[in-house]
């Protein structure tokens, strides 16, 4: 069982990091499309109708799906003032509480975005603009996928906490 769990944690970590790295390519595409729009408008006097909606969809995808990577690296912003006050042993148990609270919250959150996400499969929602893209439906599904990824990576972090193989958290803003 323990072996299975540590294999799960390792596999989940790899998946999260892989998706996270893929997200960096998405951001790069966003930058390219936005810069291109400026060139099209001023260089060729020919603004595109798709640039903004496509950029928003790609960016949204990147920052929702990067959640596993962020969680794997323990980069979610939190206040760690008490760490110095309570000492490492007590803080270790605080870590457990933080992981459990996050698992519960994000699971409930996933339930909250569940219905809207499934609804778009029976009744797709379009942007209604000139492009009339499927972007609104896409975002509703994405946020559910993001929440599920978040929970799965939190479970991996929980396994690491139990097995004493947690990664050091890194500061970041």
């Amino acid at each position: 069982m323990s072996k299975f769990l540590s294999r799960y944690a390792a596999a989940m970590d790899r998946a999260s990091v892989f998706i996270g790295h893929a997200c960096s390519a998405l951001f790069f595409a966003c930058i390219a499309f936005s810069a291109l729009e400026v060139v099209m408008r001023y260089g060729f006097d020919h603004p595109t109708s798709w640039s903004i909606e496509l950029t928003m969809a790609l960016c949204a995808m990147a920052w929702v799906l990067s959640v596993g990577y962020v969680t794997e690296r323990n980069r979610h912003i939190s206040i760690t003032m008490l760490e110095l006050m309570v000492g490492p042993r007590v803080w270790h148990w605080f870590r457990l509480m933080q992981i459990l609270a996050a698992i519960v919250t994000v699971s409930v959150f996933a339930m909250a975005v569940w219905d809207p996400a499934l609804r778009v499969f029976s009744r797709p929602e379009y942007s209604g603009t000139a492009l009339n893209s499927i972007q609104p439906s896409l975002l509703k599904v994405l946020i559910l996928v993001g929440a599920i990824l978040y929970v799965l990576q939190l479970l991996a972090n929980l396994v690491r906490w139990v097995q004493g193989t947690e990664k050091a958290s890194t500061h970041g803003h």
């Binding site: 903004i52 603009t129 000139a130």
Partner: peptide, 24 residues
């Protein structure tokens, strides 16, 4: 002409009239 128009018929009509609807 570049014309800002959001959701609805307006952007389709502007496009059909030869303008470029821009969604900002």
């Amino acid at each position: 002409k570049k014309i800002r128009s959001p959701e609805g018929l307006a952007s389709a009509v502007f496009a059909a009239a030869g303008a470029s609807p821009v969604s900002i």
